[in-house]
């Protein structure tokens, strides 16, 4: 019941976020400019007709365009792109690409961050703790773009040093490759390693810091001592009693970090030449593609809400105290 109400809230929020994105894009982007450079120059009537067709004509009042757009949205249609193609079709092609990146990036980054952070707390002020702290702060202080490019540079260096193309850093897969299912999968993984890593590193840094602090708070608590007094070894008490409890606040933190990571996706996709949602939003802003921008915003909002929903469920599962209310 609680979760159902949450879901209803999310739908409203996603709609609002998308609306704001649409209104912002519709008022600031100027699709008419796309036709200014065109040779032969189309007549104003022709442009108007074309823009009307796309529901992008700035001569139509914004309210009218918005109403039309909302009507489409209600049927699940995000309208047409500036090139006249269906935004929905384009989205269908790209969503999978982005989701793959986000999913693996998050899972790898969060898990490794939590484990390293927790272990760092157990070994506070030892070498492992100092090294992981140093690494995390280094990553946190470097912009995502720089990390992505640096990884590329390192990959090139490794490829050259070994003489084998271990890492691929352009596109999702080598086009025209004929190597059977396993060969294609291997090829895809080769391509995926770098961008996934670029995303995961940022996640790892944020999570390891946070988890370390949470773990330190919990390690000294009485119940960990009780667990040891029962006969658990120090290590077992830490991982069974302390880590489980220290995970609770991290789950809430997950939602916040997720938003930052989505922003990171746009750069990563652009840099590694992946045709995902992130690179699309940049392209659509350049081409004044209002409907596409709104569609991508909607996708991002859904992702954030999904992350938030997921963390709510995790929270309820981890912490029995919230289940009652």
């Amino acid at each position: 019941m609680f979760l159902v109400r949450r879901l209803a809230n999310y739908v409203v929020l996603i709609f609002l976020a998308t609306t704001f994105a649409y209104l912002l894009a519709a008022t600031t982007l100027d699709p008419r400019a796309n036709y200014a450079e065109m040779r032969p120059q189309p007549s104003e009537e022709q442009v108007d007709a074309r823009l009307d067709e796309l529901n992008l004509n700035d001569k139509t009042p914004l309210a009218e365009r918005y109403a039309y757009w909302v009507g489409d949205i209600a049927t699940g249609d995000f309208g047409l792109s500036v090139r006249g193609t269906s935004v929905n079709e384009e989205m269908a092609r790209r969503v999978g690409v982005s989701l793959r990146l986000i999913l693996f990036g998050t899972v790898i980054g969060a898990t490794s961050g939590i484990l390293v952070g927790a272990y760092g707390a157990v070994k506070q002020y030892r070498f492992f703790d100092r090294a992981s702290t140093g690494a995390a702060f280094f990553v946190l202080s470097v912009p995502a773009v720089v990390i992505a490019i640096s990884l590329q540079v390192i990959a090139v260096w490794i490829n050259e040093a070994t003489g084998v193309r271990i890492f691929q850093y352009a596109g999702e897969y080598t086009t025209g490759l004929d190597a059977g299912f396993w060969g294609r999968l291997g090829n895809r993984i080769q391509h995926a390693v770098l961008p996934t890593l670029a995303l995961a590193i940022g996640q790892f840094a944020a999570f390891s810091r946070y988890q370390r602090n949470m773990m330190l708070d919990v390690l000294g608590s009485d119940f960990v001592r009780t667990a040891m007094a029962k006969g658990l070894t120090r290590r077992r008490a830490f991982f069974k009693h302390a880590l489980r409890t220290a995970l609770i606040p991290t789950v809430t933190y997950f939602t916040f970090v997720f938003g930052i990571m989505l922003a990171g996706t746009t750069f990563t996709e652009k840099i590694y030449g992946w045709n995902g949602m992130g690179s699309w939003v940049i392209d659509s802003i350049v081409t004044n593609d209002v409907n596409a921008v709104a569609a991508v915003s909607c996708f991002m909002a859904i992702c954030v809400m999904a992350a938030s929903f997921f963390s709510d469920i995790l929270y309820a599962w981890l912490d029995p105290r919230v289940r009652v209310s």
Partner: peptide
């Protein structure tokens, strides 16, 4: 232990 409120694992 002394403090029964914190001596049991809450989860």
């Amino acid at each position: 232990f002394q403090d029964p409120l914190s001596a049991l694992t809450p989860v």
